[in-house]
Computed example of a mutant assay.
Amino acid sequence: MLNLIRRDFIIQKWQLLVFVLVILFFVLLGRQDPAFIFLLASVIIPINTIAYDEKAETNILLNSLPYTRSEIIASRYLGTIVFIILATGVTSVLLYVFDRNFSITDIAISSSLALLLLSFYLPMSYIIKPGYNFPIAFISFLLLAGIVPPIVSYLGENLTSVTDFLLNLSVPILYISALLLGFAIYATSWGITTIIYRRKAF
């Protein structure tokens, strides 16, 4: 299973450099919120991996190898977590080198959102017709990036009881709760995707 994760690194070795340059562009631009940059870095590689596999019809090859379908999906979900961790590390270094301020809050928010977005995207990638995954993911990301902040601001202003409750929580508890919720949804998505993949014909 580790070889499957390693395969994703190998097939994207040149594209990873392009991704780093894209993140560097946003860092140097200096206009985007650090949480947005972390989020972009976290989701772009997993989404590209699925898009590549879709074009190369990799699933046919993977199912001919001595791996169960559960192991293939497990490698996808574990690999995604590895990508998120590495992307967060690289982005942190770039932000630090170019003197862009960021905080643990930015990392916690972006990691939680990345887990949430990928929890919906990964199972959908095995349902959506081949060739439409990347465009749908790209459009969805832009829509969420534009819609979610205003919604959060609106809810924060109007649901004062919920806002007060959250503000009274200590920072560590708030971060841990957000990450645990993200992982819970991610684990549920993992189970759903495994069921979908087992029943899918290649």
Rank of each mutant, 00 (worst) to 15 (best):
R6S: 14
R7F: 15
I11V: 15
K13G: 04
K13C: 08
Q15N: 15
Q15G: 12
L17Q: 10
V18H: 09
F19N: 10
F19R: 07
V22C: 13
I23S: 03
I23E: 00
F26V: 08
R31Q: 14
F36Q: 06
F36L: 13
I37L: 02
I37K: 02
L40W: 11
I44W: 08
I45M: 14
N48Q: 13
N48W: 09
T49F: 06
T49E: 12
E54T: 05
A56G: 05
T58P: 06
T58D: 04
N59Q: 11
I60L: 12
N63L: 12
S64K: 12
S64A: 14
L65I: 05
P66F: 07
Y67S: 08
T68M: 03
I72Q: 04
I73G: 00
I73M: 01
R76Q: 15
R76E: 10
T80P: 01
V82C: 10
V82W: 08
I84S: 01
I85P: 13
L86T: 12
T88I: 13
T88S: 13
G89V: 02
S92D: 11
S92C: 14
L95Y: 00
Y96M: 03
F98P: 05
D99R: 05
R100M: 03
F102W: 06
S103D: 05
I104E: 11
T105L: 13
S110D: 05
S110G: 11
S112T: 15
L117H: 01
L122H: 09
P123N: 07
M124I: 07
S125V: 03
S125A: 15
Y126F: 12
I128A: 09
I128T: 13
P130F: 00
G131I: 06
I136H: 02
S140L: 12
S140H: 08
L143G: 08
L143C: 03
L143H: 02
L143E: 05
L144Y: 08
L144Q: 01
A145M: 07
I147R: 01
P150C: 04
I151F: 11
I151A: 11
V152R: 11
Y154L: 14
N158H: 12
N158Y: 11
L159Y: 13
S161V: 09
V162F: 14
T163I: 02
L166F: 05
P172F: 00
I173K: 06
L174E: 04
I176D: 07
I176S: 12
L180Q: 07
L181D: 09
F183D: 03
A184L: 13
Y186P: 00
Y186W: 01
S189H: 01
G191K: 04
T194L: 02
Y197F: 15
R198H: 13
R199H: 14
A201L: 15
